[in-house]
Every structure is written in structure tokens, then in C-alpha cells.
Design a protein around this nucleic acid. Structure first.
Lengths: 329, 329
DNA sequence: TTGAAAGCGTTACCAG
DNA sequence: CTGGTAACGCTTTCAA
């Protein structure tokens, strides 16, 4: 029922081959013939069948995107970036959500790999072993994780933490807490490590608390531990955790920032929607997504040259009310 | 390079036809042969090429999902539902985000339609005319909108509004505001209409304010108008708008719920993360997504019988702090 | 119950 | 510059 290349060929009075060329390699066909083909195609509303094309070219025009949890507002930002960048190059996006289940990741990659030209793996939690086995089979770009030479987009966690600590130090804090995220999260390990060296260099005491789930509930769960730690400021693994802290502090009657300063990481939109608004380190979410697709497309063009590509995006401290003033002590 | 059906056939010592049958219509092949094929397939890690299969069966095993804006936390919930239900039936999901641009919707549907068996259209804003033209070409299930006999999943907006108004009435409110959402949104029109009849029946004054963008900024923009309207309670088109109101009220020093009660709609996770937590009407987001896929799959099975399908899910008032106590007046 | 062959819509290759 | 033919990986007749 749908119109095929043969229909167009018949209407244009040429062979299917010529139609194919006219539409995909216009330079190879006479201007007049091309015009005739284009007219016929438009008239019939012809849309090439991508599956058929992919069968022979080996290119599907699709990319896969795997995220841990769409419910964490950080990821939709990334997804939008991937989406819009992909569409610019006429790629479609397969989306899969692993529900924070590391064991599902590898399977999903394998399932998707047959239908896509490459995969953007967002914040993968899987083991390095799984990772390596999986990237052997399909072009993959990782977001928010760096493992060896695997193509990856990351942000500058170290500098982000540096900015955060400098801010707290300037406010006079001498003892701060860190509510850690998932043990398997690369970002978490990076941030924790940066925090240790930075606070150490600044002569600030660091109390590490956790690990906790990278969600609101994780922050709620951590809140009392934070209070017990005797810190005047706390940095949470991400904004969601920070919001959980904020919320529990509010119900406990602990004033923020008067009694304790709170900082997040990510700059999800929510962080400006709460009061006090949340001081946080911004990750350019859409840009991360776009950069991931950029790199993947390069990788598809030229597997060798791009294979070594890694790119680090800047992070940016956003000072807001939750660290608004220095504590008295 | 990838392993094809022929490879499996060779290893199993049978013909490709038999492999195909063993894997897709096991009943048609002898138990022993089938076992041999399955062993070979597993050993080689064979994954059928869906594109090739689709070429001949006319089924892609993919569904398309189009949402207005992934950044509104309502939609990720729906996407997760679609995702997980689709995966249960071995379907993959193409995702597209229109960025709240109604004119992009029809084009996206057309672009996707060649690559999918059907499309789930979430909260479409496009005109009825576009809608009808588009559904003529591809199986479509709408979410959160009802137009004629087009298959659709909706929630019971009327009952949701009824519960909301009853709650406010019980608290003693006699004059309430409604911050309207997008003019083109079906949900918005439904809620506004329900609000008129319900408040009218209860002898409550209704002040309609807006339209505003269905986002945090929309609520911020509406807040002063709400204060000027002299209402003791306000219902926002959705939670995001309500959060915008809450935020602006906070900066204005207007106490919620003491000075004014605020209600949202949707029950996005955020609504429990702010303080005061937001009273809202819950829409079962994942369930909406799942129901949409359910209906789409039915529709694919049996286009005639299911074509008339429409399903309405219940909505549920969630009372929280933002309407916590009755106003004194 | 199994195999051979045709064909899905497209592009690539080779003549002309 | 264009047409014919083969091939992509799979399923589906049709015979055996």
C-alpha cells in the first residue's frame, strides 16, 4: 500500500536505480532527470523505507539512548539534548530506561545494538568488564563516566567541587559533610575524591556520609546523620539528595542556611523552584546530550580517529539561597 | 560480520527456513530439531535482524512516543510507563520531544510513522484537522485528549476537579481562582469546564486567570494576578504552575495556606518535595503510559474491534500541606 | 516436518 | 549518466 521507489520510478519514467541516486546522490544524475524524479516523489508523497535501506547500507539512521532513571530530572535534560541533536542529523532515537538496575544495562545495549548505528550510554553503572564486552560489539559513547580510552563526555567534576569548596570556605565553614551517592557511580567517586583533596588543601574537615540512593528519599534518609555529624555545611551527591535534606531539615525545624548550608550538584530546574533555592554546581544537561551525539556521529564517520575522543565540559557554581549567608560559628 | 540466520542454519545443520520456523513458530518444527537450532542460536549469540524481518512481515516491533516537553516531570512518568509496557511485549520505543511546538507534532508523526507499527501521542496540541489527517496513515493512541472516536487514554478530569472543589468547599472557601493552562490543551479545557459547573453548583465564585504556559514560569507570571483577584484559594492548571505560584508567594511573603490555599494537578514527584507540600489531583502517570501501549497493541492486533476503544483512568485527590487549614474569612 | 525459492524495498555494482 | 541485476537478512509460500 505505501508508495515505494518503484512507484516513483514508474511515474518519473526512469529506473528505480535512478530514483535512488537522484534522491541520495543528486550529483550523479542529470539536472532534468533529477527534477522529474523529485516531482514524482513529492507528488506521490514518497518516503524511503529506512529498514530496507539499512538492510543494504548497514546504517539504520537510529541511535540508542540508555538512561538510569528518567524520573531524576537530570536525565530528561540530557535526553532532550540527544534528541534535538540527533534530529538535526536526521537520526531517530531509541530510548531505554534501566530503572537504576545495572544488570539490565548490558542486556539493553545488546538488544538495541541490532537496531541502531550506535549507542549513547548515560551514566552507566555496569562493571568495566561488561562495559568492555559491550563496546566491542557496537559504537558507544558514554556520558558521565570515564573508563580507559572509551569515548566519553564528562563534566569537570574536580573544578566543580573546587568552586563549591571555595564558596563554602569563603563563608567561613571549617567542617563540611558530603552525602555520597551510589557506590558504583563514577561521578560520585570523582566528586568524593576531589572533595578530599580540596578540603585537605584548604584545611577543612570533611565528613563523608553514605552511600545513599541518588534520589529525594536518599537525602531524607541522610538528613539526621548530617545533623549528627556536627558540620556547618553539607554538599550532597546531587540536587535530588540535597532537596531531600532540605525537606527533612524543614520538618525538623532546622533553618537553612542559618543553621546549616546545603549544596547540591547538577542544577536541575527544581533547584530554583524550592525555597530556599538551592546553591548547586551546574552541569549543562542538554549540552552533554548534544556533545554525546556529536561524538557518536564522528565515531560512525571515522571509527579510528574518533575512537580516542574524550571531551570534558565545564561545570559552573550557581550560588543561591541555601548557602546564602555565613554561619555565626 | 554479525551472525545471521544462515550461520545458525549451518551450525545446526538445517536450512534457514527451519531456523526461522524454530524461532518464531516452534510448534511447526520437531522437538529435536528445534533444540538443535536453539542451541546453535544461543551458542552464536544470534539476534534476528528486526529490520529484515520487518521488511517482509510489515511489522517493525517499534512504537513511537511523542511528548510535548520532557522537562515537565509529568511526562517522564508517562514515558517510563510506555517504555516498560513496550518492553514486556518486546517492542522498542522511539521517543520524540516537540518542545511544546504544536506545528512540529504532525511532522514528527509522519517522520516516525514509517519506522513504527504505531504511535502513542501524548497530550497532543495539534489541530483536530492535523490529527485526523495523521491518524489516517498510522495507528495512533492519544493520551490526555479526546477527539471523536480516536483511540485515547484519558483520566477523569471532571471527577478530579469535583474532588478538588469539594475539598476547598469543606475548608470554607467561597471564592476560588483557576490559573488556566495552554489554550490548546484539551485537559485545560476539560478542567476549566468542570470547574465552572462544579463551583456553580456549590455556590462558589470562580475567577479564571490566564492562559499561562504549563510551566513554573507560568505560575510565577500568574501569581500577582491571583493575589489581585481576591480569592482565598487557587487551583492551578498543573503542579508546575502551582509551584510557580508557591514560589512567588513565598518571595512576596504571602503565607500558604494561611493567607491562600494552593492546589495543583498531576501529582508530579516534586509536589511532595517542596514545603509546604502541594495538595494536588493525582494522575497515574506510568499507568497512563502503560494503558496507552496496551491499547495500541490491541489496535495492532485487531484494528476494527479496538478502533472504538477509549479508556478513562481515575484521578485521586492528594491532600497535603498547601491547603492544610481553613482560612479565617 | 523440512528445504528451495521467491520476494519485501532499497542500494551497489557493473555494463552500456 | 542511466539501466539491469544482485544482494542485504528474513519469512513465507510451495513442494517434497
Amino acid at each position: 500500500m505505501p508508495v515505494t521507489i518503484k512507484d516513483v520510478a514508474r511515474v518519473a519514467g526512469v529506473s528505480p536505480s535512478t530514483v535512488s541516486r537522484a534522491l541520495t546522490t543528486p550529483a550523479l544524475v542529470q539536472a532534468e532527470t533529477r527534477a522529474r524524479v523529485e516531482r514524482a516523489a513529492a507528488e506521490l508523497g514518497y518516503q524511503p523505507n529506512r529498514a530496507a535501506r539499512g538492510l543494504i547500507t548497514g546504517r539504520t539512521g537510529n541511535i540508542g539512548l540508555i538512561v538510569p532513571d528518567l524520573t531524576n530530572p537530570f536525565f530528561p535534560g540530557v535526553v532532550k539534548g540527544v534528541q534535538s541533536r540527533a534530529r538535526e542529523s536526521d537520526f531517530s532515537v531509541f530510548l531505554a530506561d534501566t530503572d537504576e538496575d545495572p544488570s539490565a544495562e548490558a542486556g539493553l545495549v545488546r538488544a538495541l545494538s541490532k537496531q541502531v548505528d550506535g549507542i549513547v550510554l548515560c551514566s552507566p553503572r555496569m562493571t568495566e568488564e561488561d562495559l568492555r564486552s559491550v563496546i566491542g560489539e557496537t559504537p558507544v559513547v558514554m556520558l558521565n563516566r570515564r573508563v580507559g580510552q572509551i569515548p566519553a563526555i564528562t563534566i569537570d567534576n574536580i573544578d566543580g567541587i573546587r568552586q563549591a569548596v571555595a564558596h563554602l570556605a569563603a563563608l567561613g565553614h571549617r567542617r563540611i559533610g558530603y552525602v555520597a551517592g551510589p557506590r558504583l557511580s563514577w561521578s560520585n567517586r570523582e566528586r568524593a575524591r576531589a572533595l578530599r583533596t580540596t578540603t585537605n588543601a584548604a584545611g577543612i574537615d570533611l565528613v563523608e556520609i553514605g552511600n545513599f540512593a541518588p534520589q529525594f528519599a536518599g537525602g531524607v534518609a541522610a538528613a539526621d546523620l548530617v545533623l549528627a555529624a556536627g558540620v556547618t555545611a553539607v554538599i550532597a551527591y546531587n540536587d535530588l539528595v540535597a532537596l531531600g535534606l532540605l525537606n527533612w531539615f524543614a520538618t525538623r525545624g532546622v533553618k537553612v542556611p542559618e543553621a546549616i548550608s546545603v549544596m547540591g550538584f547538577d542544577d536541575i530546574v527544581l533547584s530554583q523552584m524550592v525555597s530556599p533555592s538551592l546553591t548547586t554546581v551546574a552541569q549543562p544537561q542538554e549540552q552533554i546530550g548534544r556533545a554525546g551525539v556529536d561524538m557518536l556521529l564522528q565515531l560512525l564517520e571515522d571509527p579510528d580517529r574518533a575512537a580516542a575522543a574524550r571531551r570534558e565540559l565545564p561545570s559552573q557554581l550557581m550560588v543561591r539561597h541555601s548557602t546564602g549567608r555565613a554561619p555565626s560559628n
